[in-house]
């Protein structure tokens, strides 16, 4: 399987035996990544919940969160990444995001509203709406992030079997 046919671009999910200089570069890469990742993730979370004011929302934030894990996987290798974020956890997250979203709808039903009618959740309809919308945005974010990771894990993983 030739990985470098496409103009030398290839993702290296698996560890290769690195030379000494490679290792030095790796350390820099890893340190920088380790330092940056929390900020990226924080930013992702911020984008998810702050859709109220400016552009942004669950989807965009979810993408950023997902990308953060992908970057981690690129730098530290797939195995390392999967230790941090296991396939099982990720699968769980794919489901739980939609579950959060759909669940909020069901809770609205239990409170006597229509499906996804947030303003019955709390006495103050406006605040209830805000909370509800934030809740679903988080749900969207979780699912999107998890699917992004899935995208990476699965496409790269299959290659491992070669």
């Amino acid at each position: 399987m030739n990985k470098h046919t496409a103009g030398g671009v290839g993702i290296n999910p698996t560890e290769k035996s690195p030379t000494v200089t490679d290792q030095d570069k790796d350390i820099i890469k890893k340190t920088v990544t380790k330092f940056l990742l929390p900020f990226i993730q924080l930013f992702g979370l911020y984008v998810i919940v702050h859709g109220e004011l400016g552009p942004g929302g669950g989807f965009q934030g979810g993408v950023i969160l997902g990308v953060s894990v992908i970057v981690y996987a690129l730098v530290f290798g797939l195995k390392e990444a999967q230790q941090r974020m296991s396939v099982k956890t990720k699968d769980l997250l794919v489901s739980s995001g939609v579950l959060v979203y759909g669940g909020i709808g069901v809770i609205a039903l239990l409170f006597g509203g229509n499906y996804l009618q947030y303003n019955v959740l709390l006495p103050d309809p406006k605040f209830a709406s805000t909370i509800g919308i934030m809740g679903i945005e988080i749900g969207v974010g979780i699912t999107v992030a998890a699917v992004m990771i899935t995208l990476f894990y699965e496409t790269v993983r299959v290659d491992d079997n070669d």
Binding site: S95, V98, L99, G102, G103, G105, V106, L109, N114, Y115
Partner: peptide, 13 residues
Amino acid sequence: ALLIVIPLLVAII
């Protein structure tokens, strides 16, 4: 709503 929501959520879990 339940007609759709039930299979949807069950599918997810």
